[in-house]
């Protein structure tokens, strides 16, 4: 077993662009689910609108990069209103079903043949990150001792973590305010909040939109880090992994999504590397009748699933959650 690369790879993954993307998506879900109690199962749709808003605006229509970002934000806001208008007056399950379906519809439409001239069909859009590339201050590989990144990756990671820091600051400022108090009240019992004269519907709409905007930023991050968006990036499991990140770190905690993202992607890589190494070579540590090297990359998801189940059983509030809050929830 070669522990050095295992450790390095995992650390790189834990702070890399993928972890950043999921962290941002989970910050949005934290506003929806953690603070307001809204079940949005279509965060992938908000990310898709962000990614495609940016990609198509730049590549197809030649819009300047910054304006394309604004188009992405605008598109997400419109999507939030369209999803929220019919569902936010109903029980939260309706929002869950609607967002889940909408995310699939949007993914299919983005990849459709009809829209291929503009959105590129199954191949999506590529090469819209030139602006980001041009601004890259790193001319050579960045070596941080244990971990090292190629210049563009390092730049994207730097931007990503700045975005996360800013997002956490915004969430913290909002959730200590009376506005955040109303959201938490809605999560606990929306009728009680209504009885105190608050426009619950309006607050839910604001929360849906705001959380969606963080999803949009996650979509930008995903697109820019890969310099490409394709419909298959935005499958339903994207949303569910973002939920894993949130629950792992602890919902309704400002840093929950950050801790969750680092742990999830770190863990996935540790497991992947471990099983990969343990099953490779002529004389593998794990005999082939248990698993072969082809199966090893899937086994990590099984182990991860079991780990998540154990976490939910023994520490359902997540790594960061508050025990006191949980004790109440359990009664």
């Amino acid at each position: 077993m070669d522990w050095g690369p295992l450790f390095t790879n995992s650390l790189e993954a834990a702070i890399g662009p993928v972890a950043i993307t999921y962290c941002l998506a989970a910050i949005g879900l934290n506003i929806h689910f953690g603070y307001t109690g809204l079940l949005n199962f279509g965060q992938a749709a908000f990310m898709a609108i962000g990614g495609y808003g940016l990609g198509a605006a730049v590549v197809t229509f030649g819009v300047p990069f910054v304006l394309a970002l604004l188009i992405g934000f605008g598109g997400t806001a419109v999507l939030a209103v369209l999803l929220g208008l019919p569902t936010l007056r109903l029980r939260t399950d309706y929002l869950a079903i609607t967002t889940l379906a909408a995310a699939e519809i949007i993914r299919q439409v983005l990849g459709s043949l009809t829209l291929e001239p503009w959105l590129g069909g199954k191949d999506g859009r590529q090469g819209f990150a030139a602006t980001v590339r041009d601004l890259n201050p790193f001319s050579g590989p960045v070596d941080l001792g244990i971990v090292g990144f190629r210049p563009f990756d390092a730049w994207v990671i730097l931007i990503g973590w700045l975005a996360i820091a800013l997002s956490c600051l915004v969430v913290w400022l909002l959730m200590r305010s009376p506005w955040g108090r109303v959201l938490k009240g809605i999560r606990e019992d929306e009728d009680a909040v209504r009885a105190l004269g608050k426009n619950v519907y309006g607050y839910k709409m604001q929360a849906l939109m705001l959380g969606g905007l963080f999803g949009c930023v996650a979509g930008f991050m995903m697109g820019v880090s890969r310099s490409s968006v394709v419909p298959d990036n935005f499958q339903t499991d994207l949303t569910f992994f973002a939920f894993c990140v949130l629950l792992l770190g602890g919902a309704a905690r400002v840093f929950g999504p950050v801790v969750g993202a680092i742990l999830l992607w770190g863990m996935l890589n540790v497991l992947g590397n471990f099983f990969g190494q343990a099953t490779s070579g002529p004389n593998p540590i794990i005999p082939t009748w248990i698993m072969d090297s082809n199966q090893s990359s899937l086994v990590r998801f099984i182990v991860l699933g079991i780990a998540l189940m154990l976490l939910m059983i023994y520490r359902p509030q997540g790594i960061f959650g508050d025990k006191r809050e949980l004790a109440i929830h359990a009664r």
């Binding site: 915004v170 400022l173 909002l174 305010s177 009376p178 506005w179 955040g180 108090r181 109303v182 938490k184 009240g185 999560r187 606990e188 019992d189 009728d191 009680a192 909040v193 009885a195 105190l196 004269g197 608050k198 604001q206 705001l210 809050e325 109440i328 929830h329």
Partner: peptide, 28 residues
Amino acid sequence: KALAKLTVLENMRLGATQQRGERLVNAM
């Protein structure tokens, strides 16, 4: 309908009407 995961004080504060801080533009 006590809001269980809010403190007693936060429950009370929530009752006050016309709060400037309950508007998104002011909240931060």
